[in-house]
């Protein structure tokens, strides 16, 4: 077992974990943060996307021990005082989902995208979300949601 200390959604946590434990497993199984989902297990789909020290990563492709000392934000850490994050609000407003399984990852990656490019073109949104797959093929409204969020002031 290896001792890790990290911050998850604003809370400091410390745990002894097996080195082979994936970050997504740690979030879901140890911390109960099941908002972050496992979609493909191959690092293709992006459903498990979280922010690690402020940038988006696929949490099935990071070991929990690699997050030692880091700050992790999951979909569950976005809303503040009961208010949805703007990107969450935009996905709701534009119905940027069908079954909803890819949504946590789509939202986390959209926030990363808007942080680096506050006014993306449609093409830039599609390229920026290249690593996130929607099995329902609901991309049209997902792109609209990101455009909506950008128009509303985006990533903050």
């Amino acid at each position: 077992m290896t001792r890790i200390n990290l911050t998850v959604d604003g809370d400091k946590v410390a745990d002894d974990v097996e080195p082979r434990m994936l970050l997504v497993q740690y979030l879901r199984e140890k911390l109960g943060k099941t908002g972050t989902v496992i979609g493909c297990d191959t690092s293709n789909c992006g459903a498990c996307t979280v922010h690690l020290d402020g940038t988006s990563v696929k949490s099935c492709n990071v070991l929990a021990v690699q997050a030692d000392g880091a700050e992790v934000t999951t979909i569950e850490g976005l809303a503040q005082d009961g208010e949805l994050h703007q990107v969450q609000e935009s996905f709701r407003e534009c119905h940027g989902l069908q079954c909803g399984f890819c949504t946590p990852g789509m939202i986390m990656q959209s926030i990363d995208l808007l942080k680096n490019n506050p006014k993306p073109s449609e093409q830039e949104i599609r390229v920026g979300l290249e690593g996130n797959l929607c099995r329902c093929t609901g991309y049209h409204n997902i792109v609209k949601s990101v455009q909506h969020a950008a128009a509303q002031g985006g990533a903050q």
Binding site: S43, G46, T49, L52, T55, S56, V57, K58, N61, V62, Q109, D112, L113, G128, E130, G131, N132
Partner: peptide, 9 residues
């Protein structure tokens, strides 16, 4: 190369 998340890591 790959996608944004992969390029971050």
């Amino acid at each position: 190369l790959a996608d944004v998340q992969i390029r971050h890591r």
